[in-house]
């Protein structure tokens, strides 16, 4: 979710997008089969690519998923001593079909979750979210934190950069590479936090002086697109999801080692 995200695709309400995301993520997790997950993933990727969102969502998802997959491969691909079907061994390393299957199942199911969530956050504007939270009478503080975090992030990085430059101008020489960056972070931390806390204090005054956090009801200037059709679709989706979960897990799903 970025401050400058476009409006929801096709004028969709963020809640509609959210319910779609939840339905997709929950059903693939419930079904928990690598083949289904892979198919859903493929479908999602095509959909996003057609939508134009793919160029943003897929690389961001890859950045998260590649280390995750490597970690799973390392853990389950090489050492899965519960596995029976041994494909290859060398010392303590035992590559088993079950291990690989487990890694694939987990990896793909998580990938669906990640892509769905990122697609949601990339297509929602923070200000819309704030307006929705206001409309449904959530505490305004929640909307403030969500929105403000996303809008102050660039300001924080700008300030960190200015502090680093001021330190260099006073003779600080930081090396290249991870060590140098770590040292720079350590040098910047105290002044950065000091400056941010100071500024936050003035912001609190400004918010309070404009009546934020009062007890009366709050309204919203911003209007979020919505339609009766979308409202019906949302309810239907949630109801369908509930029915599906009921049928899928059956009545005994909560007992240990229940179905699947």
């Amino acid at each position: 979710m970025l401050p400058d995200s476009p409006a929801g695709p096709g004028g969709l309400n963020p809640l509609t997008l959210l319910s779609a995301a939840v339905v997709i993520a929950v059903t693939t997790t419930a079904i928990n089969s690598w083949a289904v997950s892979a198919a859903v993933l493929l479908l999602l990727a095509t959909l996003l690519a057609l939508n134009g969102l793919g160029r943003k969502v897929l690389p961001a998802a890859a950045v998260i998923m590649v280390p995750f997959w490597l970690s799973l491969l390392l853990t389950h691909g090489l050492f899965f001593h519960e596995g029976r079907t041994i494909l290859w061994t060398a010392g303590p390393v035992r590559v088993t079909a079950e291990g690989l299957q487990f890694a694939a199942g987990m990896g793909l199911r998580t990938a669906v979750f990640v892509v769905v969530c990122l697609a949601f956050s990339f297509s929602v504007r923070p200000a819309d979210l704030m307006a929705l939270l206001t409309k449904y009478r959530f505490p305004p503080q929640l909307g403030f934190v969500l929105c403000s975090t996303l809008t102050i992030a660039p300001a924080v990085s700008g300030r960190a950069r200015r502090i680093a430059q001021a330190q260099q101008s006073r003779g600080l020489v930081t090396g290249q590479g991870a060590g140098g960056r770590l040292r720079a972070v350590q040098q910047q931390a105290v002044p950065l936090v000091m400056a941010l806390l100071h500024e936050a204090g003035s912001r609190a005054d400004s918010l309070e002086a404009r009546g934020f956090g009062g007890r009366g009801p709050r309204t919203s200037y911003r209007e979020v697109p919505d339609s009766p059709a979308q409202r019906i679709i949302r309810w239907l989706a949630v109801a369908a999801l509930a029915v599906f979960l009921m049928l899928w897990f059956g009545p005994g799903w909560f007992t240990p080692g229940g179905v699947r």
Binding site: Q141, V145, T149, A204, F212
Partner: peptide, 17 residues
């Protein structure tokens, strides 16, 4: 959240960043 005073509330986004 609703019980948090505004002076603390404005720090939360900073903390999250």
């Amino acid at each position: 959240l609703p019980t948090v005073p505004t002076s603390t509330l404005v720090l939360i986004p900073v903390a999250l960043v």
